[in-house]
Computed example of a mutant assay.
Amino acid sequence: MHLDLTDLRLFRHVAEAGSITAGGARAGLALASASARLRAMEAQAGVALLLRGRRGVSLTPAGEALLHHARLVGQQVERMRGELGEYARGLQGHVRLLANTAATVEFLPEPLARFLAAHPQVEIALEERTSTAIAAAVAEGRAELGIAADHADLAGLEALPFRTDRLVLVAAPDHPLAGRGGVRLEEALGWPFIGLGAGSALQRHLAGHAARASGRLRLRLQAPGPEAACRMAALGAGLALVPEAAARRAGAAAPLALIPLAEAWAERRLLLLHRRGAALPAHAARLLVHLAG
């Protein structure tokens, strides 16, 4: 087979996204170009690499084997870039960083901005995921770094302290729950909610806890972010369940009630993760030190 780095990078992105359209976009290729490259790869291999369906694509056993090698090649290329970058300025380095909603929205913007300003040759692919998915992806080598809550499975990972995150309920000042010293999620489920977008990792996380409490979050609307949800909750549209930092920031602009969530899982230690025993590319290692500091 004669595959170039673009082919392998495209295949890796398509496999991780479960979609030719999304994977092609991540690789910087139009759908027609991405599809043509994938068909050419299958023709060279003499075997199907992808199972195509109406809801996306999945890997055949041959595709799984190719994905393994594509990841290894990608990691070697990033190590080469990092080492050569010590000698040749301007060589691009790429780091894939996965983070949960709280880290993405509340804690990462300023540290990442400072790192990018100091390292103009590095690009960071920041993607929001649930903590469980983040830990699995980093352990499997699908991302160099991750930031996840401490409830995730940390097998095969090194974990460094990053931040502490607390989830709280937000309501209008005259809401019946306002002023309570703590409210269980099961009790709050009796009220309508303003949720976060369908792609929000935090929203999926909360839906899981609601299901374990034998209920569901009755969403009146899904807001584009935690602060927007807080502003709507403050005006009586429903309850919001968001990181405390976002709630306090929204509370500085409008009156609202901040209600502690009386659940052990509401307070989460966020951890900075990388794969145990794996040598990070130089630029990923520098980002790790920067975030840990």
Rank of each mutant, 00 (worst) to 15 (best):
I147D: 02
A117M: 09
P176E: 03
L272A: 04
F193I: 02
R180A: 05
E83Q: 15
V57T: 06
M80S: 15
V183R: 12
P109H: 13
F11Q: 03
H119Q: 12
Q121W: 10
P255E: 03
T104Y: 13
S35A: 11
G179P: 09
A22Y: 01
S200F: 06
A247M: 10
G74S: 10
G215L: 05
A282E: 10
E267A: 06
A282T: 12
A152Q: 02
G277E: 11
E86F: 00
R55K: 12
L98D: 11
A246L: 07
Q203V: 03
L239F: 08
A139L: 04
P173F: 00
H274S: 06
R79P: 02
T132Q: 14
R55H: 15
V95W: 00
L5G: 11
D153M: 06
R248D: 03
L177P: 12
E128I: 07
V168C: 03
V57C: 08
F115Y: 11
R212I: 08
P173M: 01
A171M: 08
V105H: 03
R180P: 04
A285S: 15
E244G: 04
T104N: 14
L59M: 05
G181P: 07
G277M: 11
L239G: 08
L217F: 14
L221P: 02
P224A: 00
S19M: 05
G24Q: 07
A292K: 14
L258C: 15
H119C: 08
G56E: 03
A125S: 09
E140T: 01
G238D: 04
P111A: 09
L177V: 04
Q92M: 15
A207Y: 00
R269Q: 13
D7S: 14
S33C: 00
F11G: 06
L51C: 06
A262N: 04
H94Q: 15
E16K: 14
G156H: 03
G195D: 01
W265T: 05
A30K: 08
V73M: 12
L273I: 03
D7E: 12
L256M: 08
A152W: 02
A117C: 05
G190V: 08
L288W: 11
G236Q: 09
G93M: 01
A285T: 10
R81P: 07
A266I: 07
I124P: 09
F11V: 01
R276C: 14
H94P: 02
V183E: 15
V242Q: 09
L145H: 05
E267Q: 15
L261P: 06
L66G: 09
A40K: 15
A30D: 06
V47E: 10
R114H: 14
L177Q: 06
R129K: 13
H151L: 10
E106R: 10
V95A: 04
F162Y: 13
G56Y: 05
V47I: 09
G90M: 12
L51Y: 03
L261Y: 02
R249D: 10
L221C: 11
G238Q: 03
V57E: 02
E106G: 13
V289P: 01
F107P: 11
V242L: 06
H119E: 15
L116C: 01
E42R: 09
R129T: 00
G63V: 02
P161F: 02
I124V: 15
E78Q: 15
V122C: 09
G141K: 12
Q222Y: 05
